[in-house]
Nucleic acid binder design. Structure first.
Lengths: 192, 192
DNA sequence: GTCTATACCTGGATAGAC
DNA sequence: GTCTATCCAGGTATAGAC
């Protein structure tokens, strides 16, 4: 949740609730009734703001894109290591809430959602991948990161690690989440 | 699909179809009607074999566990490198079919499924993790693999890479799948 | 073991009053 | 902008004939 509830418009509250539900239960398992129950508004009113479930899905992804852009701007002058740690800490919060990330949640439902959602999600995933790639490149150039492969490949390795460990650690062991986070950081340290 | 259709019982055909649908559409998005349409049997008949959807889900995971045990036995006398490559090739097949793996599919739906499914999935995930860990340990002892961290941690890193890249590469670029596979192998190679 | 028929529920979506 | 009322499609599940 990005703002205090009393500062949010109904539209924003709906999106925020949809986000929680999508990442907790999946896109196909959440319903307008769930939102209705959570925020005390009738499903018909939700349809006023978002005519279809697809519209709500797209809006939720767009919200994530906007947040990520703010996030990027806030961290712009920080070190590559701090940027990466902050990125990983987003997932620590997700883990704490026993949810998964938006990309991970929607990616497994991809064959069942409207192309509008699929395309918006592509935009978001590419945005994140590009940013992590840049952070890794900067870190390598500054000598604070050391890794084989291209920055893009390493970014894919790190993103897949973190995206999947929030899912997998619910099945293996909750502590595996921290273990993987630490391994990601450790593996980037220069061996000198 | 493990056998020819004409050698399978109705029960096995149902499980196999459920498996395809779960990994293609997700547990909550597939229906008994989907199976009915695919294999030409009425939904009521499916209920004869599996009283509830949960029963079918559990049976599908149990089938995966059995297959994995056979798989382990078949590869028992093979080299660690071959074992790992064969493991990764399971995902190449999944990628080819534009699906995701069972663990990845059900993990994002975990908060919405019956505990019976959750517990069976835990058993499966632990089984796989244990096996990959052993393969890595053997490879390290034989000097064919080199890596930091414990074998279990490295197994988590590899499994999360492969589990998530089948999902993520649908959004970023299909070729990212092969790139990650190759990076996994390359990163394990001894440096001198 | 498979069928028809049906019960029951939930979901997305819309019309129209306020 | 939110409500009540309603429609219709689809889902899981069961009863009972064959």
């Amino acid at each position: 949740m990005q703002k205090d509830l009393y500062l949010m418009t109904t539209r924003e509250i709906i999106i925020d609730t949809a986000d929680q539900l999508i990442r907790s239960n999946g896109f196909n398992a959440f319903s307008f009734k769930d939102i209705s129950n959570k925020i005390g508004i009738k499903t018909a009113s939700i349809h006023y703001h978002f005519p279809t479930k697809t519209d709500l899905g797209v809006a939720t992804i767009k919200e994530h894109i906007e947040r990520f852009e703010h996030y990027k701007a806030e961290l712009a002058d920080k070190s590559p290591l701090l940027k990466l740690k902050r990125f990983l800490s987003i997932y620590s919060q997700i883990k704490l809430e026993n949810k998964v990330c938006l990309v991970g949640s929607l990616a497994t439902d991809l064959n069942t959602v409207d192309d509008k959602i699929k395309n918006e999600l592509k935009t978001f995933a590419e945005l994140v991948l590009l940013w992590v790639t840049e952070v890794l490149t900067d870190g390598k150039n500054q000598g604070v990161f050391e890794f084989q492969n291209t920055s893009r490949t390493k970014a894919l390795m790190i993103i897949t690690n973190i995206l999947a460990i929030v899912q997998l650690s619910r099945l293996t062991n909750d502590e595996d989440f921290e273990i993987v986070i630490e391994a990601i950081i450790r593996d980037l340290e220069p061996h000198n």
